[in-house]
Design a binder for these strands. Structure first.
Lengths: 115, 115
DNA sequence: CTAGAATTTCGACATGCGTCAAAGTAGAAG
DNA sequence: CTTCTACTTTGACGCATGTCGAAATTCTAG
């Protein structure tokens, strides 16, 4: 128990983040720093069955299909969602690990130091 | 205890976020979706005493003072940091409430439903 | 193979964002 | 009041991003 067990605050407020970590985290954050992508991520993640067809997504936006596809690609490239084609349709599901990374950045961690 | 106590996942993956909530959250996320601002926020939040002089910030970046000031303003406008002038120097400190908002978006909440 | 639907890629455009140099503001020191 | 330092605002520039229309891709159905 000599080592620090700092529970004070979010990781980001515990010690200065390194430049490379900042670049990595910022890339992830940039992927969700858009209302459309946030809604898409939320719709995909909260859908019963864990999977959503793209065709069920486009209807809720005043955007063209190419634009939705563009946002989906950004989320997928960031590792936040995964896509799979089955027949005519493409289904997307959330990748919880990556989403948790986001939360971990700003959440006062209850984990012991070093974890 | 009859009501749901949904611990499955992040709020964003529990139910579809509303458009207005998405816009609000995206604005907050955009403020931290930049390596420089992420480092700035981290340096301010992790500093002993809870306050940092701007003059202690600029040295760690290969950026001009106006650029640092610009990023600081974005963080302040987003409500993530607060600034105070004392004499010649300006001191910034973190606003934990706003930072927690970010974490709450993506963290599997341990709070009971309805909270 | 042809026809058709779902989705992505491509090309283009307007807007937004990060950066700097120069000028402006606020307080300390003489 | 003048000068110096610390910081912010303004104006400008180039690059990135969100959006669309059109074309290409991938699969199903005859």
């Amino acid at each position: 128990m000599t080592a620090a067990t700092v529970l004070c605050c979010a990781p980001i407020a515990r010690e200065p983040i390194s430049e490379s970590d900042a670049v990595e985290a910022a890339a992830l954050l940039k992927a969700v720093a858009d209302p459309v992508r946030l809604r898409l991520l939320s719709m995909i993640g909260s859908h019963a069955g864990g999977e959503v067809c793209v065709c069920d997504l486009t209807g809720d936006f005043d955007l063209t299909a190419p634009t939705i596809s563009h946002h989906l690609k950004i989320l997928r490239t960031a590792g936040l969602i995964g896509g799979e084609r089955r027949g005519t349709w493409v289904y997307y599901r959330i990748v919880p690990e990556t989403v948790n990374k986001l939360g971990a950045l700003f959440t006062p961690s209850a984990a012991p130091a070093g974890g």
